[in-house]
Design a binder for these strands. Structure first.
Length: 956
RNA sequence: GCCCAGGUGGUGUAAUCGGCAGCCACGCGAGACUUAAAAUUUCGUGACCGAAAGGUCGUGCGGGUUCGAGUCCCGCCCUGGGCACCA
């Protein structure tokens, strides 16, 4: 065997050419009975900037996985394509004064040039491009089907308009109210739009996330759940005094309805106009509305400063539960598009209402008391009687120092303020003073005021041998005005000791959570209580839990036909039209006689017309509108004149279903042949960036479920397993960007270190899903690893006998690499291969068989060097025709193990023993160790803990 | 503010079930080779004390459970990501 230097530049192009000429190694086979794996990358948008090393990380991972699956005997589908419609392509084309189609073609060519030298297994015979009419024909077809099924509709509503991109944007396209692409503040414009009724699928999109066969990271699932934002609540009507009008509100906290002290309507709420005649300050109200509509999204949300609003004077709302008359406000902290656009305001239990009520000095009324349930010794006991009781907790401040009088209880672990029972007919203040004097012995007390509202406690009171269910407690703050003192009577102090505690130590001292709350209110002021608890001050609903009260109250509303339970979502329907040229034309014809008519299927695709100027307009009209030849057509229904829809689809249309087309890319009869779909779907592994968690992945699931519903496909969830790729930042820690001049291009890395070293480095740099900075030194390390492997070939010796140690290590490595790739723990897989190589390096001779196994284990990560060395060992066939090795469980087990001996939890000695040593034997050896003996001395051994195969812990 | 993820040497990181913290690399230091440098190679490399043997401390901070905690529980601090007036 020749011993030339490792030269990736020589071997890598050679093997890439070989793979290109032997597509049978990796190309997807439709007719085979082998098990399949559909391994998918999020396809790129071919930008003019090209790829940097960060873009490749996900592609390398799927390639490693695909190569493993090939070796394990699977048929794989691992395709690649281009998501080429949309704003960036169009902007790039405008800037470079070329047609977007040409720009896209050039960029794709460049991308392929960058991808080729990395050595991927892509099946290019299935390449797709979303801007290809043969592809977007089926995007349009799906839209038509949605239109026919009432899922695509026209709406004229205020929508997000980006003044710079000159188009409408979906909610999903915003970042803090700004256009995610150009950072421009969007404005609200009322425009006719096509919208997809995605909310109809909200529940399915939510609940199918919990399906057991959906192996997605929790991170992504959680983001989708939050985005969908399902909430269960109640919608009910309230009468308006001296009027026929009613106002309808939505709430998830009906249990707090007795705490409602006013109501609020959003500025755009129609009731305001309807009540015009009864509103005494209508002019003021109108001005407020006008002002709030001028506010940009920035002022409304980002600054989120003070709440503002105006009372509708002369209007009174009637709370149906207690007949109370309350004022109505218009305020822009209530959103017009969510729920009913109006809310009941309960300042005591809602932070926003609290803030508003404080500002406008509106009453705040508590109707739910937080509930604290005792644990441990304080836990309710079934065998003891339940008693109710009212108490006052008294915060007593020292007359001179900044100290507070507290109690340390003898019966249990309580540390508290003075706590006293309230007798019927007594006032809170009087009781507070009486109890405080009796239990502390101090005189000269002055009540400053009540602290907070009511709290409930449920616990077992050991000193009285009864359950408190529930105890109602309030808190009073008292200051001593002098040092007058008289020894308290025994009966009042027998259960506890009184202590003066410094102000800063009080929070730490208290053991009862409810008293910590009072203390927090005393120090930091009162806030809204937003947790569930026990309903109070609410007539017949008092003393129910929040949950029970919500149930009973909505029953009552339903019985009286003024309300019902309702589910709402944060997610809104998908605004689906863009006023730009470079997108799929929406296949609709507008006819004066027949209205909105779908283009017949036989006329699909509706091709984008060739035009000279595709620059966007300010008017909200698509540039297509100017192409009268194209716009004017005949109505397919009546044959009369019709006009084509000139809006185009958003960038996310094609990517919502592209993965289906790879399976059947040439089919011109149906979107996908179901037989082929059954063979390949669902996608077994989908890898891409987390930035698509709520947009692409939600759209794709929605689109897929729709295609399933119309029986176009047989699966209703597209992606079985989803893994997100962590970003690679530049060496300086910043994002890789032309602007910072810190972009690392794959060409440069390959030129210097070769593709194998780059691939191995990207997989080795850290946990796959974690964001990590690029390190050129790191690539040096993996390059040295390649060199090390290359040099090892000198040591291959056909005659060398099987080394026991190596055999054990090889089998451990087989197990580890296979399992780690399966779990996307590439970094530790490579680490174990390095350990193996280091072990080989110490050997004089390496058995040929061992080395061959190692090459197969390495080949998914570093395919070129593996093929080359494999070939040099005399193999005529590609290494990827090999079988992935199997490990032998018996050979993994060590014969001898090292047992750790601990004394009182500290490692004191280690012994090497036979792996199947018995507990008695091990313990004996441990206690007889000379070292251990010196640590034990003449102390008594209390306990010996033996953990098989690991350690012996001696307690003395 | 809410939700999620994370915090381990100089750096990237590793550590089934609670069981020897720091695997594998990078970097750094010293030596070998060399006229010299690079490359290569050998050894060392968490901190502190010690000549060494060895010992003490150590996984963001403070408590707790346990024979034993990076890992579990409670309370905080910090970083990254997502959502953000959704009633």
């Amino acid at each position: 065997m020749s011993e030339n230097k490792y030269d990736p530049k020589k071997i890598e192009p050679k093997w890439q050419k070989y793979w290109e000429e032997h597509p049978e190694l990796y190309a997807a086979k439709n007719d085979s009975d082998k098990p399949k794996k559909y391994i998918l990358d999020m396809f790129p948008y071919p930008s003019g900037a090209g790829l940097h090393v960060g873009h490749l990380k996900g592609y390398i991972a799927t390639d490693v996985y695909s190569r493993l699956k090939i070796l394990q005997g699977f048929d794989i589908l691992h395709p690649m394509g281009w998501d080429a419609f949309g704003l960036p392509a169009e902007s790039y084309a405008i800037k470079n004064k070329m047609h977007p189609r040409i720009a896209v073609a050039e960029n794709i060519k460049n991308f392929k040039k960058q991808l080729d030298p990395v050595g991927f297994t892509y099946d290019w015979s299935r390449e797709i491009n979303t801007t290809d009419p043969e592809f977007y024909k089926w995007t349009q077809w799906a839209f038509l089907k949605m239109f026919e099924n009432g899922l695509a509709y026209e709406a004229e509503e205020p929508v997000n308009w980006c003044p710079k991109c000159k188009t409408v944007l979906a909610n999903e396209d915003l970042e803090n109210g700004k256009c995610e692409r150009c950072g421009t503040q969007v404005i609200q414009r009322r425009l006719r739009q096509w919208v997809l009724r995605m909310t109809k699928y909200a529940d399915r999109l939510l609940y199918d996330l919990d399906r057991k066969d959906l192996n997605w990271e929790d991170l992504i699932k959680e983001q989708q759940r939050n985005w969908i934002g399902r909430s269960e609540g109640t919608q009910f009507k309230m009468k308006i005094k001296d009027s026929e009008e009613v106002i309808e509100v939505y709430t998830t906290r009906l249990d707090t309805v007795f705490g409602m002290t006013y109501a609020v309507a959003a500025p755009e709420h129609e009731i305001i106009k309807r009540l015009k005649d009864s509103i005494e300050n209508y002019k003021e109200v109108e001005e407020y509305i006008a002002k709030s509509q001028q506010k940009t999204e920035l002022e409304r949300t980002e600054l989120q400063k003070e709440k503002t609003g105006v009372e509708l004077e002369g209007v009174k709302i009637i709370n149906p539960f207690n007949g109370e008359e309350i004022p109505l406000f218009v305020a822009d902290y209530v959103l017009g598009f969510y729920g009913t656009g109006a809310v009941m305001a309960v300042p005591a239990h809602d932070e926003r209402d609290w803030e508003f009520a404080k500002k406008y000095d509106l009453p705040i009324r508590q109707s739910v008391a937080p509930l604290f349930i005792g644990e441990g010794k304080n836990k309710i006991r079934e065998d003891k009687p339940n008693t109710e009781r009212k108490v006052v907790d008294v915060i007593i401040k020292h007359w001179k120092e900044d100290k507070y009088f507290c109690l340390d209880w003898k019966f249990n672990d309580w540390k508290s303020f003075v706590i006293g029972g309230i007798e019927e007919g007594e006032t809170l203040e009087k009781e507070a003073i009486r109890e405080a004097e009796e239990e502390s012995g101090y005189k000269n007390m002055k009540v400053i005021g009540q602290v907070g509202g009511e709290i409930r406690s449920r616990f077992f009171a050991a000193h009285k041998d009864v359950n408190r269910k529930d105890l109602s407690r309030k808190c009073v703050f008292i200051e001593l005005t002098g040092d007058g003192y008289e020894e308290p009577q025994e009966e009042h102090v027998k259960n506890h000791n009184g202590i003066w505690v410094e102000k800063e130590k009080v929070a730490e001292f208290l053991t009862l959570a409810e008293l910590k709350i009072f203390w927090d209110i005393y120090r930091n002021g009162e806030k809204a209580i937003t947790d569930d608890g026990i309903v109070i001050n609410s007539d017949e609903y008092s003393n129910l839990t929040s949950e029970e009260a919500r149930e009973k109250m909505s029953e009552w509303l339903e019985k009286n036909k003024i309300g019902y339970k309702k589910v709402n979502y944060k997610m809104r329907d998908w605004v689906f039209s863009r006023q730009r040229y470079w997108g799929e034309p929406i296949p609709i014809i507008h006819c004066e006689k027949c209205g909105t008519v779908g283009v017949p299927e036989s006329e699909l695709p509706v091709k984008l017309p060739e035009i000279d100027s595709y620059e966007p307009t300010d008017t909200g009209e698509s540039p297509l509108a100017k192409i009268t030849d194209w716009v004017n057509t005949t109505c397919p229904k009546c044959g009369g004149p019709g006009k084509r829809e000139t809006n185009t689809m958003p960038q996310w249309a094609g990517s919502s279903w592209y993965f289906l087309r790879y399976i059947d890319p040439q089919n011109d009869v149906v979107l996908i042949d179901k037989k082929k779909e059954k063979k390949w779907m669902p996608v077994d592994l989908y890898v891409g960036g987390a930035e698509h968690a709520t947009r692409h992945l939600l759209y794709a699931r929605f689109w897929h479920k729709f295609l399933f519903d119309i029986n176009a496909i047989t699966t209703d969830e597209p992606f079985r397993r989803l893994i997100h790729v962590g970003l690679i930042s530049a060496e300086d820690g910043r994002k890789m960007s032309k602007r910072w001049g810190n972009v690392v291009n794959p060409e440069e890395v390959i030129e210097k270190f070769g593709a194998d070293a780059m691939r191995v480095y990207e997989m080795f740099m850290g946990p796959f899903s974690q964001n990590i900075a690029w390190s050129t030194n790191g690539v040096t390390g993996t390059y040295r690893f390649m060199e090390k492997l290359w040099k090892l070939q000198k040591k291959i010796n056909d005659d060398s006998s099987k080394e026991k140690r190596l055999e054990n290590l090889i089998h451990k490595t087989i197990k580890k690499v296979g399992e780690d790739i399966e779990n996307f723990k590439f970094n530790t897989a490579i680490s174990s291969l390095m350990i193996l190589a280091n072990a080989f390096e110490k050997e004089k001779n390496i058995g040929r068989e061992y080395f061959e196994t190692t090459l197969v284990l390495l080949s998914p990560f570093a395919p070129s060097i593996s093929e080359e060395l494999w070939n040099k060992l005399g193999h005529k066939e590609s290494i990827f025709t090999e079988k992935w090795p199997e490990y032998d469980e018996k050979l993994i087990k060590d014969e001898e193990i090292e047992l750790v001996i601990q004394v009182n939890g500290k490692v004191r000695d280690k012994i090497v023993v036979n792996a199947d040593i018995s507990e008695e034997e091990a313990n004996k050896m441990a206690t007889e160790s000379a070292k251990i003996k010196t640590f034990i001395g003449d102390r008594e051994i209390k306990k010996i803990i033996y953990i098989k195969g690991r350690l012996i812990s001696i307690v003395i």
